[in-house]
Design a protein around this nucleic acid. Structure first.
Lengths: 147, 147
DNA sequence: CTCGGTGCAAATGCTTTGCAATGTC
DNA sequence: GACATTGCAAAGCATTTGCACCGAG
């Protein structure tokens, strides 16, 4: 998707943050992220980069993912035990997740009322929200039918 | 708190689950959990057990925490990067978390409307919910003032 | 007496780190 | 040229596992 706009955001972020440098690796990782639909993990992204002939190290992938998080281009989640999952967040509305415990499928949820209610509850507690996740674990309709 | 009732729940669960056995270690871990206020991690619980003269291994602590999760006595969360956090869930309403990124404080949130809205959204997607967490990351009022 | 559970230490798997080499600014 | 960033392999860390021993049923 609009990869160029994402480049701009990263460029602006790097410049505004003093000593941070624009390296080929960082843009390569960003491109791969923008090419990716849905959720992915660090290892998978690394594998796809290598397979596409991009020379990066795992360390750089992890570093860059953190960087991209900081400029709001990527979100990070921890649904299951072992590994962190990421997703492209540029150009996508804020949303939440229904996670099927049977098949691991993730259904996304966008809801204005939920956002509003959350904000309301935060101000009741004088809490200034920055980011949030709603994670509902359960069974999706497909798996439900199988049983 | 009502540790005896919790014992009963565990006993019932063990019996109903065929081959599972009631060991001293399991009850010792449960007792320590019931004695704990707020959130804790596996290592901390292990440490407190050892310090109190209870002989258990880390492996058993992890095992038992999973067991207690399965009978609904304990909930598990993954707020931060590294380690899982647990909390006693027996005798407590379902609630959510506002997590302060400055001081790490966790504010609990109980709200009926939020629960209802969640359930509504699930049925729209024909999703059968089992458990859920809402995690809002931000700044608490105390840290807000400091800035 | 059986077989599920425990303890230990070693293994696992994701993620980070230390340091020399590299490439941006 | 200075120094932030990279790559590599090794280290870290929370959690799990394999196996011999133990003890609940």
């Amino acid at each position: 998707m609009n990869s160029e706009a994402a480049h701009d955001i990263l460029a602006k972020y790097l410049k505004s943050n003093g000593k941070r440098r624009a390296t080929t690796e960082r843009y390569a990782v960003l491109d791969e992220v923008m090419r990716t639909q849905g959720h992915f993990d660090a290892e998978g992204l690394y594998y796809r980069l290598i397979t596409n002939g991009v020379k990066v190290s795992r360390a750089t992938v992890y570093n860059t993912l953190e960087l991209l998080q900081n400029c709001g281009l990527v979100s990070k989640y921890r649904f299951t035990e072992n590994s962190s999952r990421y997703e492209r967040s540029y150009g996508r509305p804020h949303h939440h997740h229904l996670i099927c415990l049977e098949c691991g499928d993730i259904i996304e949820l966008v809801n204005e009322r939920l956002e509003r209610l959350q904000n309301e509850l935060c101000s009741e507690k004088s809490f200034t929200p920055q980011s949030s996740t709603v994670q509902v674990f359960g069974t999706c309709s497909r798996c439900r039918k199988k049983e």
